[in-house]
């Protein structure tokens, strides 16, 4: 099994406050890894460190076999074009239409004829389950769920190998959230994606994540949902055995009780 994301000894501190105290994590090719943790536990900081938006205080991060702190900026750029990131509210460029948003990375990295660019945008829009009319709309004209799908289409524009999702189902209704989960599963099957997602959605965790990384006490504990259920760390206990988790496990019997 090869690790497409390898984090070792990662430390992040802000002033006196140390968020990460040596995080070690390996994400394997083709898996869906969920990242959970309490508010302020440093989930977002970890995600931002991995995609290179935040320079860690110490430790190493390798993405697709490249050290992202490597001196060569060209290599980092090349790696960046092989990952896709969906920010929480889509982070679509507000002055461009959805289709133009999707074409931004294509125009930046490749030289393709206009007709082909338009057809690629149309295909991505269809792939993420948006109506064709959405292509000409501005982000402000879309609902929250549609903005997420449009953001996903842009993240997928370059056919990335790794997809980073920041709370993909937050703010969606349960039907929309379930549809989004299914979409991620379908895309993984067809595009062979590796997915690294920050989420608080227990349904999502149970339904699509192969393994779950829990960020507690500045470190991560990675294992399957079933093993996390047996972990006796108080926070993990509270998280996976809280009233909400019990509701999920009662309704989705097989998943939460570890039948996977």
């Amino acid at each position: 099994m090869d690790g497409v994301i390898e984090i070792s000894g990662l430390e992040n501190r802000f002033g006196a406050h140390q968020v990460h105290k040596g995080v070690d994590l390996i994400v394997r090719r083709g898996e869906i890894m969920g990242l959970v943790g309490g508010s302020g536990a440093g989930k977002s900081v970890l995600l931002r460190s991995v995609i290179g938006l935040q320079k860690p205080s110490a430790g190493h991060i390798r993405l697709l076999d490249h050290d992202i702190e490597a001196a060569d900026p060209a290599a980092v750029e090349a790696v960046r074009s092989r990952i896709g990131v969906l920010f929480q509210d889509g982070a679509l460029f507000s002055s461009l239409t959805v289709a133009e948003n999707i074409q931004v990375p294509l125009r930046e990295n490749l030289s393709l004829p206009e007709g082909l660019l338009d057809r690629i945008a149309a295909m991505k829009i269809a792939m993420v389950g948006l109506a064709p009319e959405a292509g000409a709309k501005l982000p402000a004209q879309l609902s929250g769920g549609m903005r997420k799908r449009a953001g996903l289409a842009r993240a997928l524009a370059m056919d990335p190998e790794i997809l980073f999702l920041d709370e993909p189902t937050a703010g969606l209704d349960p039907i929309g959230a379930a549809a989004f989960d299914q979409l991620i599963l379908d895309l993984r099957a067809s595009l062979g994606l590796t997915v690294f997602m920050v989420t608080h959605d227990l349904d999502s965790l149970a339904a699509i994540c192969d393994r779950i990384a829990v960020l507690v006490d500045g470190k991560v504990r990675v294992s399957t949902l079933a093993d996390h259920m047996k972990d006796d760390h108080p926070w993990i206990q509270a998280y996976f055995h809280g009233p909400r988790a019990r509701a999920v496990s009662a309704s989705g019997a097989g998943h939460m009780t570890g039948a996977r």
Partner: peptide, 13 residues
Amino acid sequence: DAGSPGRHLDVHS
């Protein structure tokens, strides 16, 4: 499925 004909799209405002 995504690229079946008849799906035409307006790209630009």
